[in-house]
């Protein structure tokens, strides 16, 4: 028998109440580590591990392995996907991973790991080229102005698309300075990571110091961005407790 809307509201309220209890239980660590926290911590670990097993089966092993190995037929019995029995080879290979617990045969666990690592390693040549080359290209920024008609780039509002295009093709002195800063910043940051030869001479150590400051500025900006991310999560939790939960209770049990 289908659930009534009111029953569904009660189910929602129970579900959100459970979530709120877990939230408060885990937040209790902010006061100090209590048994309440450890209880919810273990509930969390158990649920995560249990769900991973289900997810791995239904999202990966079944559609990508079992279904291909056994093939597929529609309701009328027509073959929609042939069965490829060769996929069964992966079962003994995968199980070799579990020899890690055997003192005598643990070397065999490296075979499936070796296959995965080999596949990963082979991709790195492609990846390096596809990722780094546009980055290297765009780092080569023009540092000599092409026009001295204005120190800063003129306002583009009210201009036609052709005029904007023409403006975009010019390098104004202020842009050239910014580009120079960009180039120095990237070269000095790279030089900071050079460990292959002695960099103790004065020019090099000054350049390294600039690199260190650039990296610090970068890390500062990352800090700001990370703070945004974490605060957003706290706000979302507060919203869950103070708005969603109360709304769910009101819907389920009236005003």
């Amino acid at each position: 028998m289908p659930w009534t809307p009111q029953q569904l509201n009660v189910i929602d309220a129970v579900k959100i109440t459970g979530g709120v209890a877990c939230t408060i239980g885990l937040y209790s660590i902010l006061y100090k580590e209590t048994k309440l926290f450890r209880f919810f911590e273990h509930v969390f670990l158990g649920l995560a591990a249990g769900y991973m097993v289900v997810a791995m089966y239904k999202e990966s092993l079944y559609p990508q392995w079992i279904q291909r190995m056994t093939g597929q037929m529609d309701d009328a019995g027509n073959v929609t996907q042939p069965a490829m029995f060769l996929y069964v080879v992966l079962l003994p290979i995968g199980l070799l991973g579990y020899t890690v617990f055997s003192r005598k045969h643990n070397w065999m666990s490296r075979i499936p790991i070796g296959i995965i690592l080999g596949l990963w390693a082979g991709q790195q040549l492609l990846n390096y080229w596809d990722t780094a080359s546009p980055g290297i290209y765009s780092s080569m920024q023009p540092i000599i102005p092409t026009t001295w008609s204005s120190f800063v780039e003129p306002d583009k509002f009210g201009l036609t698309p052709d005029q904007i295009k023409a403006l975009n093709q010019q390098i104004y002195p202020s842009q050239a300075i910014n580009n120079l800063i960009f180039v120095i910043a990237i070269l000095s940051s790279l030089s900071y990571f050079i460990y292959s030869f002695d960099t103790k001479n004065r020019a090099m150590s000054t350049f390294n110091r600039i690199g260190r400051w650039t990296l610090m500025i970068g890390f500062g900006a990352i800090f700001g961005s990370t703070v945004m991310a974490r605060f957003a999560l706290v706000i979302d939790r507060m919203y869950y407790i103070w708005v969603e939960w109360i709304q769910a209770l009101q819907k389920a049990f009236g005003q």
């Binding site: 546009p134 961005s225 957003a232």
Partner: peptide, 17 residues
């Protein structure tokens, strides 16, 4: 992306990727 990932995505925006 999240704020944590954002800074590492910006160089790719600058390069047009």
């Amino acid at each position: 992306c999240t704020g944590v990932i954002g800074p590492s995505a910006l160089p790719y925006f600058q390069s047009g990727q």
